[in-house]
């Protein structure tokens, strides 16, 4: 058996060098729509991270113990998206019942999350790259944290920018993309951080 990519490297890479938003463009819709205020942005970031880890783990089990043994690989997209939709529902009910404080904070974001590309994206990447359980866990954790970090940074900058005078066509999504581009450029600078292997 060939040596595997170390889970720790995957963890760091998925936060910095291959950030879900800045390098893989996943979860852009809610990233742009919910980033004008820092407080809501960080709430959404937390909710996405939580759901991302839970769904990736459940989908890993479903893929290896249900889809592969039954030879249903061609149905995997439907299965994954239904698992995600169901888990989000269950999570919402569970939080409403047992964690009302958390639900008050994150509850509003949960329905949005089902259609967040980052969630399904993490699952698909994990399957295509043949990650084992530990690799998948750290990959989804890193991806969630990376997504959270990116949306917080954008929101913080957009809050400040509310006071700036921009050319009329650039205000709104235009400038948000421009900032994201500059952030992505800065993150390219991280690509040398793991020489260890």
């Amino acid at each position: 058996m060939a040596p595997q990519v170390s889970p720790l490297v995957i963890f760091i890479a998925s936060i910095f060098t291959n950030n879900m938003i800045l390098a893989n463009f996943l979860g852009m819709c809610s990233y742009l729509a919910i980033s004008s205020e820092y407080k809501t942005a960080t709430g959404l970031g937390k909710a996405v991270s939580l759901v991302l880890v839970i769904t990736a783990m459940v989908n890993w089990l479903v893929y290896h113990y249900f889809i592969v043994p039954l030879g249903l690989e061609y149905l995997q997209f439907i299965v994954f998206i239904l698992v995600i939709a169901a888990l989000v529902q269950i999570l919402e009910l569970f939080m409403d019942r047992y964690l009302p404080d958390l639900h008050a904070n994150l509850g509003v974001f949960l329905p949005l999350i089902t259609v967040n590309c980052a969630i399904l994206g993490a699952t698909l990447f994990m399957v295509i790259r043949h990650y084992n359980f530990l690799q998948s866990l750290l990959f989804s954790l890193g991806s969630g944290i990376g997504w959270w970090m990116a949306i917080c940074m954008l929101a913080a900058m957009r809050e400040k920018m509310g006071k700036a005078k921009l050319p009329p066509g650039l205000a709104g999504p235009g400038i948000a993309f421009l900032i994201t581009g500059i952030m992505a450029l800065a993150f390219v600078g991280f690509s040398g951080i793991f020489a260890v292997q």
Binding site: A2, P3, V5, I128, R129, H130
Partner: peptide, 11 residues
Amino acid sequence: IEGPGLWGSIS
């Protein structure tokens, strides 16, 4: 030949 790449195994 096989080995770890940046993202997953390369073979």
